[in-house]
């Protein structure tokens, strides 16, 4: 009797749960058009930075560096959308939450390490022997 009442009790929150988190929303549907769009975009976004560096089309090195980093970032977003099928609503938004958290951690790791180590390098490295008294 107690088990019976429990099962009926257990089913109700399950369906409610699925509505909220969208667990059973099945696999993302891929399309030929989506894959081809992603592929063409990534070929273009790969060719441009290689061309920029190999031909030296931009005179300034800083400008080239900024350009290839920006194009790289755009290409990563293209891959996320067209190949990894990221949408704000996939898995009830939990993949996007995990991604945002990871991006924050990656940015902290990269900028933090580079920033701290740059200052350590410039301020604490032993001087060149010729500069010693």
């Amino acid at each position: 009797m107690s088990t019976d009442s429990h099962t009926s009790h257990a089913i109700a929150p399950k369906t409610g749960h699925d509505d909220v988190h969208g667990h059973g929303d099945g696999h993302p549907v891929s399309t030929f058009k989506g894959y081809m769009t992603g592929f063409v975009l990534s070929v273009i976004l790969t060719a441009i930075p290689f061309w920029l560096v190999m031909s030296g089309a931009l005179d300034s090195k800083t400008a080239t560096a900024v350009a290839i980093l920006a194009i790289g970032a755009v290409q990563i977003v293209v891959h996320m959308i067209y190949f990894l099928h990221m949408t704000p609503s996939s898995e009830g938004g939990w993949t996007l939450m995990a991604l945002i958290f990871t991006v924050v951690m990656v940015v902290i790791t990269l900028t933090g390490s580079l920033w701290v180590m740059y200052h350590l390098n410039t301020n604490m490295m032993p001087m060149d022997p010729s500069q010693l008294p």
Binding site: T46, F50, G72, I76, H79, L84
Partner: peptide
């Protein structure tokens, strides 16, 4: 996706 980071950050920036 990781390879995009590698060829941009390591190879292209390295040669630059």
């Amino acid at each position: 996706v990781v390879w995009i980071g590698v060829f941009t950050f390591v190879y292209l920036m390295g040669v630059l």
